[in-house]
């Protein structure tokens, strides 16, 4: 708890620094440094671990037999190898989608209950994803592209990245295909550049200072799409999963850093 208080104080200092001529990214870098041992995401990680190991749902079982791709119950390194194809569902799944499979099939949750308010700060899904991602810290991103459906998802994800539509003609590529670009002061990763893709993909999920919440990669992408003025994509939909396959593929080899801190 002391860490969290220190984190809150750190935020005050970092915001103060924003007023000076120091750039926003420098201020956030300083803030990150202050939080090195106390990212508020740690609270979510702990809560996620508790959710993972506590018997829950109509069947009153834990998630400890959930197969995240490396075998039932294997959490270590699983996130760095997602999304991937799962034979039991016959589809490529990301971490959220796979968790929902486990929550509905193992624990017996109704899908609506498992996904209720998933996008709100502190949701169970957010906590579980944070816990799982943290258990890939130090592991290189190595999303498989072997099964025919994985190969297809990569192609669809890349095409989706460049697909323009909507009143503003935006695609992901509009903002994320050049180095050193910003929207206002917000620096943008360039997913055509593997080094930049790695820098970005290895720090999600991330504690977002502006939201006082941990955001997962999927949550972040759904918000990008909202900002593009598209309709809201469904949680765990094929477009979002395919896009993550493409982004992970661009970032392959990047070493997972554990939850990051973002604006």
């Amino acid at each position: 708890m002391r860490r969290i208080v220190a984190a809150a104080l750190g935020l005050g200092v970092a915001c103060g620094a924003l007023g000076g001529d120091q750039s926003a990214s420098e201020a956030i870098a300083q803030y990150r440094q202050m939080l090195e041992d106390g990212n508020p995401a740690e609270l979510m990680e702990l809560r996620g671990e508790e959710l993972w190991t506590t018997p829950r749902g109509p069947r009153n079982v834990t998630l400890e037999q959930c197969d995240l791709g490396l075998g039932p119950g294997v959490v270590e390194g699983a996130y760095a190898r997602l999304p991937r194809y799962f034979a039991d569902t016959d589809r490529v799944q990301d971490v959220e989608s796979r968790l929902l499979t486990c929550m509905t099939t193992l624990q017996g949750f109704a899908y609506e209950d498992a996904t209720r308010a998933w996008y709100k700060a502190g949701s169970d899904l957010e906590a579980l994803v944070t816990f799982i991602a943290t258990r890939s810290k130090g592991q290189p991103i190595d999303t498989p592209v072997k099964h025919a459906k994985e190969v297809e998802a990569l192609a669809v994800g890349a095409d989706f990245f460049y697909r323009r539509s909507g009143p503003l003609d935006f695609a992901c590529a509009t903002c994320h295909s050049q180095d050193d670009r910003r929207i206002r002061l917000q620096e943008l990763p360039n997913f055509e550049n593997p080094a930049s893709a790695r820098t970005s993909m290895t720090v999600w999920p991330a504690y977002r200072v502006s939201q006082s919440a941990v955001w997962t990669m999927e949550r972040r992408l759904i918000d990008c799409i909202r900002q593009m003025r598209y309709p809201e994509p469904e949680l765990g939909s094929d477009a979002i999963i395919a896009l993550q396959v493409y982004l992970q593929h661009q970032a392959r080899g990047g070493v997972m850093q554990g939850p990051g801190i973002k604006r």
Binding site: V156, F160, R163, S165, G166, D169, Y230, E234, A239
Partner: peptide
């Protein structure tokens, strides 16, 4: 495959929203 994926991935969108925000014109 891309268009099928896009059609399936936004089940909450109304027909109007699909037409104006997801369907592409020739230039897009």
């Amino acid at each position: 495959a891309l268009e099928v994926t896009v059609r399936r991935s936004f089940p909450g969108a109304s027909d109007e929203e699909r037409r104006t925000r997801l369907d592409q014109d020739e230039v897009q």
